[in-house]
Structure formats: structure tokens, C-alpha cells
Simulated assay, not measured.
Amino acid sequence: MTGAVEFTPWIKTYPSGRADARATLVFPHAGGAALAYRSLGMALARAGSNAYVMQYPQRGDRLAHPAPATVGALAEDLFAAGDWAGLGPLNLFGHCMGAVVAFEFARVAERRSVPINALFCSASEAPSTVADAPDLPMARDEILAEMVDLGGTDARLLDDDDFVELLLLAVRADYAAFNRYACDDEVGIAADIHTLGGDRDHRVSEATLRRWESHTRGAFTNSMFDGGHFYVNDHADEVAELVNAL
């Protein structure tokens, strides 16, 4: 069935080759490009999922695409990229800001009668807590300090002026949308929510992850892995097995 479904070329696909494979959509962190999730996409394929990694505007092959002003608009933009209903019940995996984008994608999908099996929220604060958190930085030096602190960017790349300018373009687009985001505690989805995090993440604790429980009318679980905010880089296969098992 998946072979008959067409998507825009900026969605990066990692097919499992299995006839019974479930589709898993991957939503990157703020400033993250689809290429950064190649290892996870391949791990998901090995575990039995057909993986589809989203590419946000203002980076990679969407460099010229205008940035949506809100997280909701970004979710609508990604939903319009293909006939998701043709893939059956979807798994959604989002890391950091990507989890909130995936949550809004799930809300769009449910309004359009596209079934969501489960939402996997990795290293992310819950939607209802975003508005009360301090705004994400927009100044160059503060953004770069944030990247170093989170640990998801090779520090050597930050010495490359061309790379930094492209990174800032993507990060500012995402941060601006995220800073405008607000969601009430009672807003939820029918799909199950499973949170994942690193046990040494100094930004997102297990207690922070558990705040997601109020946003599902289904089941909720939490799993912790050894590592920091980008623990998933070291546990791609384990994460993929977990996603494919639920």
C-alpha cells in the first residue's frame, strides 16, 4: 500500500521492505534538519517501520520555503505533504520541539479522520507548559550558547561561518514559532502518548516528561535511557525497537 502513496520529495523515507510495516513519522528538534535523523530513520526501518523524516522550512532542500509563523501552521504544512491516510494508523516520533510539532500534527490528523496509533515524545516539555517557560533566545550568541549547552551540534561546526548562518536561519524560524505557542492542559489527543528521555538531561527531567500524560485520552508510559538531551543519538536501535513494539 505504501508504494502507491506519494509525498513531496523533501520527506526523507527509509522503507523497511516489510509488507506489514507501520508508518513512523519523525519530527526533528528546533533547528534540526532531516539529515540529522538518518540514523534513527534507518534504525526504525531495521525494526520494521517505514520511516518518514520531516523537513521543516528554512533548511536543506526547503531553504527557500517561508517559515510558518506558528507551530500549528508548521503542523498543517507537514500534514499537507502527502496522503497520510493511505498509510494506515501512524506512529509519530518527535524530539524536543519536534514532539510539540508532532502533537499538533496529531491534532490535525484526528480532525481529518487520519488515525494515529501513538505519539512518542522525546526530551520535550509538555504542550501545556510551553507558554509559562522563558522565551527561547533569538540573538546569535545566545542561540549558539544554547546549541553548545544542549549538545546536539558538533562544536567544530560552530567555527564554520557558513554553517552557523544556515543554522541560525533554521533555529530562529523554529524558535519564533515556538515562542508564540500556547496550549491548555485539557487539550488532548485520542492516541496513546509515550514519553522518552535521557536520565542525565539537565533540561528535561522525568517529571517534566510525565506532564504529557494530561494530553492523552489513551494510555501513557514513560521510558528513560542512559544519556543527556540527545540520548537518542546513542540509542537509536533501542528507541526504534520501542516505537515498533507499541
Rank of each mutant, 00 (worst) to 15 (best):
M1V: 12
G3E: 15
A4K: 13
V5F: 08
K12W: 02
K12R: 15
S16N: 09
S16M: 06
G17A: 12
R18V: 06
D20G: 07
D20C: 09
A21S: 13
R22E: 11
P28G: 05
H29I: 02
A36L: 10
Y37T: 03
Y37E: 00
R38T: 13
R38P: 00
S39L: 09
A45Q: 04
V53K: 03
P57V: 10
Q58D: 04
R62L: 14
A67D: 06
P68L: 07
T70V: 08
V71C: 02
G72T: 05
A73L: 13
E76M: 05
D77P: 04
F79D: 05
W84C: 03
A85D: 14
L87Y: 04
L87F: 12
L87C: 12
N91E: 13
H95T: 06
F105K: 05
A106E: 00
V108S: 04
V108K: 06
R112I: 07
A126I: 05
S128G: 10
D132W: 04
A133C: 09
P134S: 10
E142V: 02
I143N: 02
L144M: 14
D149T: 10
D149Q: 13
L157A: 13
R172M: 05
D174K: 00
A176L: 13
A177I: 03
N179V: 09
R180N: 13
Y181M: 07
H194G: 02
G197Q: 03
G198D: 06
H202N: 11
V204D: 01
E206D: 14
E213K: 15
S214R: 15
T216Y: 09
T221I: 03
N222C: 15
S223M: 10
F225S: 06
F225G: 03
D226Y: 06
D234H: 14
H235M: 09
A240R: 03
A245I: 00
